[in-house]
Computed example of a mutant assay.
Amino acid sequence: MPRETYADLELTHRVLHQASAWGYRCACQEPGIWQIRPEETRDEPWMLQSWEGRWLLLIHCVPQISFYPEEALSFMERHRHQDTSSSNTAVLHRPR
């Protein structure tokens, strides 16, 4: 089980709270290990997983990068804006 400090736990809860507010799915995998995934309607191969105060980006269950909490929030925010931009672009450029 990962060892987290009180400050780590506060940051983890902040990340989870914001992720949930943005529509990401958050779940506790086992004590002390959280996962954040894109909304259920999206079929995407990535997830973020907490580990000792950091967030691991996993793609197809393979670790890619370790984020500090602020970086994890930035990643999710950018991903969220890309999704919004992509869906708006697709609607604007739909063939008639």
Rank of each mutant, 00 (worst) to 15 (best):
L92P: 13
L92C: 09
D43F: 09
L92A: 12
H60P: 04
T12W: 08
W46M: 05
Q82N: 05
Q64Y: 14
E44P: 04
L57R: 11
T89Q: 12
Y68W: 10
L48N: 00
I36H: 00
S86R: 13
T84H: 11
L16Y: 00
L9V: 08
F75P: 00
R37K: 11
V15F: 01
P69W: 00
H13T: 09
I65A: 04
W55E: 01
D43H: 15
Q64V: 09
T89R: 06
R37Y: 10
Y6I: 12
A21F: 02
E52N: 11
E40G: 07
R54Y: 11
V62M: 13
L58N: 05
A19F: 10
L56C: 06
V15L: 03
R54V: 08
M47Q: 11
Q49E: 05
R78H: 13
A72M: 02
W46I: 03
Q82C: 02
I59W: 06
T89F: 11
R96Q: 04
R54E: 04
L48P: 00
S50A: 06
H60F: 12
D43V: 13
S50Y: 01
P38K: 02
R14E: 06
H60K: 11
S85M: 12
S66C: 11
D43C: 10
A27Y: 07
E52K: 07
L58K: 06
R54F: 10
W51G: 13
G32H: 15
Q49S: 12
P63C: 15
P2H: 12
C28Y: 10
F67I: 13
R25K: 03
C61G: 13
L11H: 03
H17V: 09
T12A: 07
R3G: 15
H13C: 13
E4Q: 06
E4S: 07
S85A: 14
L92Y: 07
P45F: 14
E10C: 02
I33D: 03
Y24C: 02
E4I: 06
H60G: 14
F67D: 05
R25I: 14
H17G: 04
D8S: 00
P45T: 12
E30L: 06
L11D: 00
G32M: 09
P2S: 04
R54T: 12
A19P: 01
C26M: 12
S85T: 05
W22C: 01
P31H: 05
E39C: 08
Q49H: 09
W55A: 01
